[in-house]
Simulated scan of single mutants.
Amino acid sequence: MKKFILLVVLLIFFVFLLLPPPDLEEKYINEFYDNTLVFEKIEDIVCQDVEKIPTLRATPGNLENGGLARLLNKMNVVQIVVKPENQICTITLVRDVLGFAGSGYSYKYRLNVRHPITYDKTIHGVKKNATESLKSGDNTVTYDIHLSNNWYLTYTGS
């Protein structure tokens, strides 16, 4: 019985550990606005010639372009994903990921989101990260917060 109680306590602890801190989203939004020029430079470097944009998935440490790597490191980006889609440059900058055993969350800055899921408190709940909100069949919550131009902050939680 003691082992069962300990297991339940540990499970509850891990669930709360995998929830993002309540002010994390605000931090990333402010981070974007405080560094708008950095995001514009990243966009300029990656999307120079739309017809020649390579598909890319890399960490800043694995990039050949040192200038781009420095900009990504400045923003604490852990991974960049670039895909040309219908002559449009799409960029995903993975900012924060935490997960364990199918539960967790991620925050990504994304450029040119094709079909953004706009945050709506009537759908997503008053608390943006509420697990009761907008669940798909796989218990995932996703929404996009418009930042500027075609940049979004995307939250995904499960």
Rank of each mutant, 00 (worst) to 15 (best):
Ile123Asn: 09
Val81Pro: 00
Asn150Asp: 15
Thr122Asn: 12
Thr140Gly: 05
Thr90Ser: 04
Val94Phe: 10
Gly99Ala: 14
Pro60Phe: 00
Gly99Arg: 13
Arg57Pro: 02
Ser133Leu: 04
Ile117Cys: 04
Leu71Met: 04
Leu153Asp: 12
Thr92Gly: 02
Ile117Arg: 12
Tyr107Arg: 08
Arg70Thr: 09
Leu98Tyr: 08
Leu147Lys: 01
Asn62Ser: 14
Lys83Gln: 04
Tyr105Gln: 09
Arg114Met: 09
Thr131Asp: 07
Ala69Lys: 01
Asn62Ala: 07
Asn129Val: 12
Pro84His: 06
Thr122Leu: 06
Leu56Ile: 09
Tyr152Cys: 04
Tyr143Leu: 01
Leu72Thr: 14
Asp144Gly: 01
Asn76Asp: 13
Ser103Lys: 14
Asp144Phe: 05
Tyr155Trp: 03
Ile145Leu: 15
Thr90Lys: 00
Gln79His: 10
Asp138Cys: 06
Ser106Glu: 10
Ser133Cys: 14
Thr131Lys: 05
Thr118Val: 13
Val78Met: 06
His124Asp: 02
Leu153Gln: 09
Val82Arg: 00
Asn65Thr: 05
Leu93Pro: 14
Ala69Val: 04
Pro60Thr: 10
Asp144Ser: 12
Val113Ala: 09
Val94Tyr: 11
Asn62Gly: 07
Val94Pro: 01
Asn76Leu: 10
Thr140Cys: 07
Tyr107His: 07
Lys127Asp: 11
Leu63Ser: 09
Lys127Arg: 11
Asn149Ile: 01
Val77Gly: 08
Ile123Ser: 08
Glu132Phe: 03
Ile80Ser: 01
Asp96Phe: 00
Val97Ser: 09
Asn86Ile: 03
Pro84Arg: 14
Asn112Gly: 04
Thr140Glu: 11
Thr55Gln: 01
Asp120Met: 01
Ala130Lys: 12
Arg110Trp: 04
Ala101Gly: 05
Met75His: 05
Glu64Trp: 03
Ser103Leu: 14
Asn73Cys: 02
Asn73Arg: 03
Asp144Lys: 07
Ser133Gln: 08
Lys127Leu: 05
Ala130Val: 07
Gly99Trp: 05
Thr142Arg: 03
Lys128Phe: 02
Lys108Asp: 15
His115Tyr: 13
Glu64Pro: 01
Lys108Gly: 03
Val81Arg: 05
Tyr105Cys: 05
Glu85Lys: 05
Trp151Tyr: 07
Met75Arg: 03
His115Glu: 15
Arg70Gln: 10
Asn73Glu: 11
Asn112Ala: 04
His124Val: 06
Pro84Gln: 13
Ile145Thr: 15
Leu134Gly: 14
Ile145Ala: 09
Thr122Ala: 07
His115Phe: 09
Leu98His: 10
Glu64Arg: 06
Tyr152Asp: 08
Gly125Asn: 10
Leu71Asp: 11
Ser136Thr: 15
Glu132Val: 06
Val82Asn: 00
Arg95Leu: 09
Tyr105Pro: 00
Ser103Pro: 01
